[in-house]
Protein backbone atom coordinates (compact mmCIF):
# COMPACT_ATOMS: atom_id res chain seq x y z
CA UNK A 1 0.00 0.00 0.00
CA UNK A 2 1.06 3.55 -0.52
CA UNK A 3 1.05 5.45 2.75
CA UNK A 4 -1.93 7.67 3.44
CA UNK A 5 -0.87 11.28 3.44
CA UNK A 6 -2.78 13.04 6.15
CA UNK A 7 -1.41 16.45 5.16
CA UNK A 8 -3.52 16.42 1.99
CA UNK A 9 -6.80 18.17 2.57
CA UNK A 10 -9.51 18.89 0.06
CA UNK A 11 -9.87 22.54 -0.69
CA UNK A 12 -12.30 23.97 -3.19
CA UNK A 13 -11.26 27.09 -5.05
CA UNK A 14 -12.45 30.18 -3.19
CA UNK A 15 -14.20 33.42 -4.20
CA UNK A 16 -11.02 34.82 -5.74
CA UNK A 17 -10.86 31.85 -8.09
CA UNK A 18 -14.53 32.28 -8.98
CA UNK A 19 -13.82 35.90 -9.79
CA UNK A 20 -10.90 35.03 -12.07
CA UNK A 21 -12.94 32.35 -13.84
CA UNK A 22 -15.88 34.69 -14.43
CA UNK A 23 -13.46 37.32 -15.69
CA UNK A 24 -11.86 34.73 -17.99
CA UNK A 25 -15.24 33.78 -19.41
CA UNK A 26 -16.07 37.46 -19.88
CA UNK A 27 -12.78 38.06 -21.72
CA UNK A 28 -13.43 35.03 -23.92
CA UNK A 29 -16.85 36.39 -24.80
CA UNK A 30 -15.54 39.91 -25.35
CA UNK A 31 -12.98 38.54 -27.86
CA UNK A 32 -15.66 36.58 -29.72
CA UNK A 33 -17.30 39.40 -31.67
CA UNK A 34 -20.16 37.35 -33.14
CA UNK A 35 -21.34 36.09 -29.76
CA UNK A 36 -20.86 39.53 -28.25
CA UNK A 37 -22.45 41.73 -30.90
CA UNK A 38 -25.20 39.63 -32.49
CA UNK A 39 -27.35 39.23 -29.37
CA UNK A 40 -27.07 42.99 -28.85
CA UNK A 41 -27.39 43.99 -32.48
CA UNK A 42 -30.14 41.74 -33.88
CA UNK A 43 -32.80 42.82 -31.40
CA UNK A 44 -31.81 46.45 -31.97
CA UNK A 45 -32.23 45.94 -35.69
CA UNK A 46 -35.75 44.61 -35.19
CA UNK A 47 -36.42 47.48 -32.82
CA UNK A 48 -35.29 50.11 -35.33
CA UNK A 49 -37.11 48.60 -38.29
CA UNK A 50 -40.48 48.07 -36.62
CA UNK A 51 -40.61 50.83 -34.01
CA UNK A 52 -41.39 53.79 -36.21
CA UNK A 53 -44.37 52.01 -37.73
CA UNK A 54 -45.73 50.89 -34.39
CA UNK A 55 -45.30 53.80 -32.06
CA UNK A 56 -48.09 56.02 -33.35
CA UNK A 57 -50.93 53.51 -33.05
CA UNK A 58 -52.51 54.00 -29.62
CA UNK A 59 -54.11 50.98 -28.02
CA UNK A 60 -56.38 51.38 -24.98
CA UNK A 61 -56.55 54.42 -22.75
CA UNK A 62 -53.29 54.26 -20.76
CA UNK A 63 -51.19 55.75 -23.52
CA UNK A 64 -49.59 52.45 -24.46
CA UNK A 65 -49.14 51.88 -28.18
CA UNK A 66 -48.34 48.94 -30.37
CA UNK A 67 -44.72 49.67 -29.48
CA UNK A 68 -45.19 48.52 -25.87
CA UNK A 69 -47.69 45.82 -26.81
CA UNK A 70 -45.74 44.16 -29.60
CA UNK A 71 -42.36 45.60 -30.53
CA UNK A 72 -40.66 45.94 -27.14
CA UNK A 73 -41.74 42.51 -25.81
CA UNK A 74 -40.45 40.79 -28.96
CA UNK A 75 -37.16 42.69 -28.82
CA UNK A 76 -36.56 41.89 -25.15
CA UNK A 77 -37.45 38.24 -25.70
CA UNK A 78 -35.01 38.09 -28.62
CA UNK A 79 -32.09 39.14 -26.42
CA UNK A 80 -32.65 36.23 -24.03
CA UNK A 81 -33.59 33.77 -26.77
CA UNK A 82 -30.41 34.50 -28.74
CA UNK A 83 -28.13 34.25 -25.74
CA UNK A 84 -29.91 31.21 -24.32
CA UNK A 85 -30.34 29.21 -27.52
CA UNK A 86 -27.21 30.22 -29.42
CA UNK A 87 -24.47 31.60 -27.18
CA UNK A 88 -24.69 29.27 -24.22
CA UNK A 89 -25.05 25.88 -25.92
CA UNK A 90 -22.35 26.74 -28.46
CA UNK A 91 -19.88 27.54 -25.71
CA UNK A 92 -20.78 24.60 -23.53
CA UNK A 93 -20.55 22.08 -26.34
CA UNK A 94 -17.28 23.59 -27.52
CA UNK A 95 -15.87 23.40 -24.00
CA UNK A 96 -16.98 19.81 -23.74
CA UNK A 97 -15.74 18.78 -27.18
CA UNK A 98 -12.37 20.47 -26.88
CA UNK A 99 -11.71 18.86 -23.51
CA UNK A 100 -11.69 22.14 -21.58
CA UNK A 101 -14.26 20.82 -19.09
CA UNK A 102 -12.29 17.61 -18.72
CA UNK A 103 -9.07 19.53 -18.19
CA UNK A 104 -10.69 21.62 -15.46
CA UNK A 105 -12.03 18.42 -13.94
CA UNK A 106 -8.39 17.37 -13.44
CA UNK A 107 -7.80 20.38 -11.16
CA UNK A 108 -9.39 21.23 -7.81
CA UNK A 109 -11.92 23.29 -9.80
CA UNK A 110 -15.13 21.62 -10.88
CA UNK A 111 -16.51 21.87 -14.42
CA UNK A 112 -19.67 23.09 -12.68
CA UNK A 113 -17.77 26.33 -12.01
CA UNK A 114 -17.54 26.88 -15.76
CA UNK A 115 -21.26 26.30 -16.22
CA UNK A 116 -22.10 28.79 -13.47
CA UNK A 117 -19.59 31.34 -14.80
CA UNK A 118 -21.10 31.00 -18.27
CA UNK A 119 -24.54 31.70 -16.84
CA UNK A 120 -23.26 34.73 -14.92
CA UNK A 121 -21.46 36.20 -17.94
CA UNK A 122 -24.43 35.59 -20.22
CA UNK A 123 -26.78 37.13 -17.66
CA UNK A 124 -24.55 40.22 -17.68
CA UNK A 125 -24.62 40.29 -21.48
CA UNK A 126 -28.41 39.96 -21.39
CA UNK A 127 -28.64 42.89 -19.00
CA UNK A 128 -26.51 44.99 -21.36
CA UNK A 129 -28.79 43.97 -24.23
CA UNK A 130 -31.90 44.89 -22.26
CA UNK A 131 -30.39 48.19 -21.13
CA UNK A 132 -29.45 49.03 -24.71
CA UNK A 133 -32.90 48.17 -26.10
CA UNK A 134 -34.66 50.11 -23.35
CA UNK A 135 -32.42 53.16 -23.74
CA UNK A 136 -33.09 53.31 -27.47
CA UNK A 137 -36.81 52.79 -26.84
CA UNK A 138 -37.10 55.64 -24.37
CA UNK A 139 -34.72 58.06 -26.05
CA UNK A 140 -35.78 57.66 -29.68
CA UNK A 141 -39.27 56.14 -29.65
CA UNK A 142 -40.93 57.79 -26.64
CA UNK A 143 -41.69 54.48 -24.98
CA UNK A 144 -44.25 54.70 -22.19
CA UNK A 145 -42.92 53.50 -18.81
CA UNK A 146 -44.22 50.11 -17.63
CA UNK A 147 -47.35 49.87 -15.52
CA UNK A 148 -45.33 47.96 -12.94
CA UNK A 149 -41.55 47.88 -13.19
CA UNK A 150 -41.47 45.12 -10.57
CA UNK A 151 -43.82 42.91 -12.61
CA UNK A 152 -41.70 43.48 -15.70
CA UNK A 153 -38.54 42.59 -13.76
CA UNK A 154 -40.19 39.39 -12.55
CA UNK A 155 -41.28 38.56 -16.09
CA UNK A 156 -37.76 39.23 -17.39
CA UNK A 157 -36.32 36.86 -14.79
CA UNK A 158 -38.74 34.08 -15.76
CA UNK A 159 -38.08 34.62 -19.47
CA UNK A 160 -34.33 34.51 -18.86
CA UNK A 161 -34.53 31.27 -16.85
CA UNK A 162 -36.68 29.57 -19.48
CA UNK A 163 -34.55 30.67 -22.45
CA UNK A 164 -31.36 29.57 -20.66
CA UNK A 165 -33.19 26.35 -19.89
CA UNK A 166 -33.81 25.75 -23.59
CA UNK A 167 -30.08 26.39 -24.11
CA UNK A 168 -29.23 23.74 -21.51
CA UNK A 169 -31.57 21.30 -23.28
CA UNK A 170 -29.67 21.96 -26.53
CA UNK A 171 -26.29 21.59 -24.79
CA UNK A 172 -27.45 18.36 -23.18
CA UNK A 173 -28.82 16.70 -26.31
CA UNK A 174 -26.54 17.95 -29.11
CA UNK A 175 -23.66 15.51 -29.61
CA UNK A 176 -21.31 18.02 -31.26
CA UNK A 177 -20.76 21.75 -31.39
CA UNK A 178 -22.10 21.90 -34.95
CA UNK A 179 -25.22 20.06 -33.88
CA UNK A 180 -25.64 22.52 -31.02
CA UNK A 181 -25.34 25.48 -33.39
CA UNK A 182 -27.76 23.93 -35.89
CA UNK A 183 -30.30 23.05 -33.21
CA UNK A 184 -29.91 26.51 -31.68
CA UNK A 185 -30.51 28.28 -35.00
CA UNK A 186 -33.53 26.12 -35.83
CA UNK A 187 -35.09 26.72 -32.44
CA UNK A 188 -34.25 30.43 -32.37
CA UNK A 189 -35.63 31.09 -35.85
CA UNK A 190 -38.50 28.62 -35.57
CA UNK A 191 -39.75 29.70 -32.16
CA UNK A 192 -38.98 33.30 -33.08
CA UNK A 193 -41.00 33.14 -36.32
CA UNK A 194 -43.94 31.60 -34.50
CA UNK A 195 -43.52 34.13 -31.71
CA UNK A 196 -43.75 37.18 -33.97
CA UNK A 197 -40.08 37.97 -34.50
CA UNK A 198 -40.65 38.55 -38.22
CA UNK A 199 -43.56 40.94 -38.04
CA UNK A 200 -46.37 40.09 -35.70
CA UNK A 201 -48.19 36.86 -35.09
CA UNK A 202 -51.34 38.18 -36.81
CA UNK A 203 -49.74 37.46 -40.18
CA UNK A 204 -49.40 33.78 -39.28
CA UNK A 205 -52.06 31.27 -40.42
CA UNK A 206 -54.78 30.78 -37.77
CA UNK A 207 -53.66 27.33 -36.50
CA UNK A 208 -50.07 28.53 -36.09
CA UNK A 209 -51.23 31.61 -34.19
CA UNK A 210 -53.07 29.29 -31.85
CA UNK A 211 -49.99 27.10 -31.29
CA UNK A 212 -47.56 29.98 -30.97
CA UNK A 213 -49.00 31.36 -27.77
CA UNK A 214 -48.22 28.07 -26.03
CA UNK A 215 -44.57 28.07 -27.19
CA UNK A 216 -41.87 29.71 -25.06
CA UNK A 217 -41.09 32.64 -27.40
CA UNK A 218 -44.73 33.62 -27.88
CA UNK A 219 -45.54 33.11 -24.21
CA UNK A 220 -42.49 35.17 -23.23
CA UNK A 221 -43.44 38.15 -25.38
CA UNK A 222 -47.09 37.90 -24.25
CA UNK A 223 -45.95 37.90 -20.62
CA UNK A 224 -43.65 40.89 -21.13
CA UNK A 225 -46.41 42.75 -23.00
CA UNK A 226 -48.98 42.03 -20.29
CA UNK A 227 -46.73 43.06 -17.40
CA UNK A 228 -45.51 46.19 -19.22
CA UNK A 229 -48.98 47.42 -20.16
CA UNK A 230 -50.69 46.35 -16.93
CA UNK A 231 -52.93 43.74 -18.54
CA UNK A 232 -53.89 40.59 -16.62
CA UNK A 233 -51.28 37.83 -16.77
CA UNK A 234 -52.79 34.63 -18.14
CA UNK A 235 -51.63 31.14 -17.10
CA UNK A 236 -50.85 30.46 -20.78
CA UNK A 237 -48.12 33.10 -20.59
CA UNK A 238 -46.47 31.48 -17.55
CA UNK A 239 -46.96 27.74 -18.06
CA UNK A 240 -44.87 27.30 -21.26
CA UNK A 241 -41.96 29.14 -19.61
CA UNK A 242 -42.15 27.10 -16.41
CA UNK A 243 -42.43 23.89 -18.45
CA UNK A 244 -39.34 24.82 -20.49
CA UNK A 245 -37.38 25.61 -17.34
CA UNK A 246 -38.53 22.47 -15.56
CA UNK A 247 -37.86 20.25 -18.56
CA UNK A 248 -34.37 21.70 -18.86
CA UNK A 249 -33.54 20.69 -15.29
CA UNK A 250 -34.73 17.12 -15.88
CA UNK A 251 -33.09 16.80 -19.30
CA UNK A 252 -29.78 18.31 -18.12
CA UNK A 253 -29.65 15.99 -15.14
CA UNK A 254 -30.35 12.99 -17.34
CA UNK A 255 -28.31 13.82 -20.44
CA UNK A 256 -25.76 16.59 -19.85
CA UNK A 257 -22.21 15.23 -20.08
CA UNK A 258 -19.04 16.97 -19.01
CA UNK A 259 -17.02 15.07 -21.60
Amino acid sequence: MTTTQSHITARRPGPRSWGILIKSEAKTLARDYASLLLPLGLPLLVLLTSASMASSEAIGTDGFTAFEFYVLPIVLTMVFAYIGMLNMPTYLSYYRKSGILRRLGATPASPMMVLVSQIVVNALLSLIGIALALSVSFVFFDAVAPASALAVAGAILLVMVSMYGIGMIIASLAPTMNAAIALGIILFLGLGALGGMFGGRSILPEPLQEVSQYLPFGAASDLLAATWTGQPVEPTMIIPLVVAAGASVLISLAFFRWE
Partner: peptide
Protein backbone atom coordinates in the same frame (compact mmCIF):
# COMPACT_ATOMS: atom_id res chain seq x y z
CA UNK B 1 -4.08 15.43 -20.88
CA UNK B 2 -3.22 14.23 -24.34
CA UNK B 3 -5.96 15.98 -26.24
CA UNK B 4 -7.40 18.73 -24.07
CA UNK B 5 -7.43 22.23 -25.47
CA UNK B 6 -7.62 25.28 -23.29
CA UNK B 7 -9.74 28.42 -23.40
CA UNK B 8 -8.22 29.45 -26.69
CA UNK B 9 -9.01 33.17 -26.64
CA UNK B 10 -7.08 33.63 -23.39
Amino acid sequence: LQSALLHDAL
